[in-house]
Amino acid sequence: MTKILVIEDQEDVRRVIVEMLIAENFYVMDAENGQVGIELIQAEIPDLIICDITMPKLDGYEVVSWSRENPETEAIPFIFVTAKASQSDIRQGIELGADDYLIKPFTRADLLGAITARFEKQEIINRQTQRKINQYYNYITQSTSNELCNSLQKIMSISKKLIDNYELMDKDEILKNLKEISTLSERLQEINPNKS
């Protein structure tokens, strides 16, 4: 179930937001200020944060800044809900890492639209990241496979030469070939993806 954290100091506003989200089958946590909100973020790692700006103890700017500075929480979608509607307030929130901005009073459709947009964007980012991971994995797998095949072919070639020409080789030449086999074997061991 998708977890949403609502951080809002006005109890009536917080209660309305929580009720709207519960009605949409979200798992909802709520906090009355930024300090409690950060404690819940750490404990629960929500999927999305809805946060007021002007609050006691820690304001919304401090909460978004904290969340963006922590590797475990930096990518959580963050929506500000506030009565502060000036361009500079919006710009400050966006620069600190907020993903969206709802101005009070807002409708249920506004809230759900913002949440849906954040999750859709997150899904696009997740798909793009997975594609890149798959590309890197395929490249590494192919490179490792090529390296393994090349090294094995060289070992087989040197071994065949040793077997076929053993009686015609002097000790130094045999030793040189054995050292080359040993070096190639060590390289195989280093690139072996299954080595423990």
Rank of each mutant, 00 (worst) to 15 (best):
I125R: 15
T107N: 11
A23C: 09
I115N: 03
P71D: 10
A109Y: 12
I94P: 04
I94S: 05
G113M: 06
S151Y: 12
D47H: 06
R14Y: 00
G97R: 06
N134H: 11
E39D: 15
E147N: 12
M1D: 09
I76C: 02
V16E: 09
L5I: 03
F119L: 12
G37F: 04
D52H: 03
S65Y: 11
I181Q: 07
D172V: 05
E24S: 10
K160W: 05
N150I: 01
G60L: 00
D89F: 02
L40S: 13
K3R: 13
T116R: 15
D9I: 10
D170M: 08
Q42L: 14
I155D: 02
E95Y: 05
D99P: 04
E39L: 05
P56F: 00
E190S: 12
Y139A: 14
R118Q: 14
E167S: 05
Q153T: 06
A31K: 02
Q135A: 13
W66Y: 13
C51D: 01
L162S: 07
S151R: 15
N33R: 09
A117W: 10
E180S: 05
F119W: 02
Y61P: 00
A98H: 04
L102G: 08
P71Q: 12
A23K: 09
N194M: 15
S185W: 04
P193A: 01
I133L: 14
I174F: 03
E123R: 15
D172P: 00
N134S: 10
Y136A: 03
N192S: 10
Q189D: 14
E72A: 10
M1Q: 08
N146C: 08
T183K: 09
F119I: 10
D89P: 04
N25Q: 15
A114H: 08
S182Y: 07
E95M: 12
A83V: 11
T144D: 06
N134I: 05
E11G: 00
E120C: 00
F26K: 04
S159L: 06
Y101E: 10
Q135I: 14
I163C: 04
Q130C: 03
I163L: 11
R91F: 02
A83S: 15
D47S: 07
L184T: 02
E72R: 11
N194Q: 15
L188T: 05
L111D: 00
K160G: 07
E120A: 08
F26Q: 00
I90M: 06
E32Q: 10
A85Y: 10
M156K: 12
L162A: 03
K179H: 01
Y27R: 14
T107D: 10
A83P: 11
